[in-house]
Structures are given as structure tokens and as C-alpha cells.
């Protein structure tokens, strides 16, 4: 479809892409700050990654190689559909290999393979506001961000320890970006939070329904909130992957039969497949 007269490259019209790029530049200039933008209707429902797709559409070019993951997996319906969408509307190559991709659009995970300079990680974000459960008034949350008044978030972590004996946010654990803005890391597991810190790749976050974009430029400090005497700990299931044997990756629990049988396998399918292939090659 690309190059066909009457159709815009990468689905969005050029005016929309310009608006998105201006928004992205502003977001990169103010790390962690949520920049409002005029989200367009996309050919998929809210909650399926409309924010991420718009960001990807605004930055993608013909020479890019796109990888899309959903909960770490390249082969879910959603990931497959989004890859096919961009093959059609942008004519780009797609891949399942983290190392080969120039743009990785993700829902709920950061790949296990460390990202490098020049790569861009695009997060699909359902709720960009880290304070939304604590302060229902949006105007007030904006004021709290403006004044860096984040005691409230700390109160929530305090309440976690009171109720659960430890900070219990397994997902979406809030972070401070560049020592200034409190940011929701989108619902990635707390296990992935340390990967955001001083990451060489550019991280972009798109929330379509909430119409917000934010960003973390390369090599920016991203620090998970905690207490001195209850430090933040990235949690993973205490097992090795049943397929590749990895003891350092984030694991999904998979039920294997009706009688309670279960195994733990890597959530990052590319990471797991690469390790399995290397093991077979070595044998």
C-alpha cells in the first residue's frame, strides 16, 4: 500500500505525524513529563495499543526493522497483527529478534537482551498517570507533578508494607525519572524496572485513550521508589526456565495439564529461543 497515490505512508496523514513528532520532541526534552496530544482513531480498539501504534507510525521509516511483543511474546494475535499492519502500511521489514530490531513496540515487557544505542523501545500504555489511584482529580495530579509533590505516592508504598509486609507492586512500580518527574513505567513487571535505568536505547510511551505521550532519553536515571529500610527488589519466580534453563529471566507460569502440573518458562520468547538454539548448536 505504501507508495500508492492517495495513501499516506505509515497509515497516518502527514499533519498528524508532524503533530506526533513535535509531541515526541517535547517529551524527550522533558524526561518523564506527560505531554498531551491529539490521539487519532486507529483501526483497533483502545487498550490494544493505539497509543503505541501512533508513536511507531510517527517515527518509522522504510529502512526500519520492527519487532512487536505482547507480554514478552512475539506470536500473540496482537503482536502478529501489529507487525502485519506495519508491513502493509509502511513497507518495513519485521523481525522477532531483539538484536535485529531498530524499533520494538511492546506491551508489558522489556526484552531480556540488553538494548543498544540507536534502538527505540515504544511502550503501549493504558494509564499514564502514576497518581491516578491516589488522586482522582486530574487537574490536581498535574499540579502535584508541577510541584514535584510526590509524598502521596510514598504513602501508597507505605500502605503496601503495612498490609503485605513488603512493597507489593509486582507490576507498574512507580519510578522517578531524571530526579524530577514521577512516571508510570506502564504495567511492566517490577523485574524490568532496573532495565530502564540509564538504558542506551530511547524509550517512548504512548497512551492512546488517555492521549498522553512521554519519554525517557538514552542514559537517563530511572529510579524505583522505595524506603531506605525496605529497598526496591525486582521479583522473579524462584525457578529456572523449563525450556532454556535461564535463571536470570522473567518467567511465566504455564499450566501443563488438568491436575495442577505446571512449568515456568521465559516470558521473552526470543530470548528463550535464542538460548535453546545456542544450546543445540553446542551439543
Amino acid at each position: 500500500m505504501s507508495g500508492v497515490p492517495g495513501f499516506s505512508y505509515a497509515y497516518l496523514d502527514e499533519g498528524t505525524k508532524r503533530m506526533l513528532r513535535r509531541t515526541l520532541l517535547k517529551a524527550v526534552a522533558i524526561p518523564g513529563y506527560q505531554v498531551p496530544f491529539g490521539a487519532r482513531e486507529m483501526p483497533l480498539p483502545y487498550g490494544w495499543g493505539t497509543g503505541g501504534i501512533q508513536v511507531t507510525a510517527a517515527i518509522i521509516g522504510p529502512s526500519d526493522v520492527l519487532k512487536v511483543i505482547d507480554q514478552g511474546s512475539d506470536d500473540t494475535t496482537n503482536a502478529v497483527s501489529i507487525r502485519r499492519f506495519f508491513r502493509r502500511v509502511a513497507g518495513v521489514a519485521t523481525t522477532e529478534r531483539t538484536t535485529e530490531a531498530t524499533i520494538i513496540q511492546t506491551r508489558h515487557r522489556i526484552p531480556e537482551t540488553p538494548l543498544r544505542e540507536g534502538q527505540i523501545l515504544v511502550y503501549q500504555v493504558p494509564m499514564p498517570e502514576p497518581l491516578f489511584r491516589l488522586e482522582p482529580r486530574l487537574a490536581e495530579t498535574r499540579r502535584l507533578h508541577a510541584l514535584a509533590d510526590y509524598g502521596l505516592m510514598q504513602v501508597r508504598l507505605y500502605e503496601d508494607i503495612v498490609r503485605h509486609g513488603a512493597i507489593a507492586t509486582a507490576y507498574n512500580h512507580p519510578v522517578m525519572v531524571d530526579g524530577r518527574y514521577l512516571m508510570s513505567p506502564s504495567p511492566i513487571p517490577a523485574f524490568d524496572n532496573p532495565k530502564m535505568h540509564r538504558m542506551p536505547a530511547l524509550q517512548l510511551f504512548g497512551a492512546g485513550r488517555e492521549k498522553r505521550i512521554y519519554a525517557v532519553p538514552p542514559y537517563t536515571d530511572v529510579v524505583s521508589l522505595d524506603f531506605e529500610d525496605h529497598p526496591f527488589r525486582p521479583i522473579r519466580a524462584p525457578h529456572a526456565c523449563a525450556l532454556c534453563g535461564a535463571a536470570d529471566s522473567y518467567l511465566d507460569e504455564v499450566l501443563t495439564d488438568d491436575s495442577g502440573g505446571r512449568i515456568f518458562v521465559c516470558s521473552d520468547t526470543d530470548y528463550c529461543a535464542t538460548r535453546q538454539a545456542a544450546r543445540q548448536a553446542a551439543e
Binding site: G151, L152, Y158, E228
Partner: peptide, 18 residues
């Protein structure tokens, strides 16, 4: 909680020791 209510101003003032 009551304790969290009392602690909020301390946390807002930067106290980070539970």
C-alpha cells in the same frame, strides 16, 4: 491507615525510612 495519615507530611518532606 492512621499511621500513613500521620506519616504523609514526613514522606512529603523527604523522609524515606519506613
Amino acid at each position: 491507615s492512621a499511621g500513613g495519615n500521620v506519616g504523609e507530611r514526613l514522606m512529603a518532606a523527604g523522609v524515606r525510612h519506613y
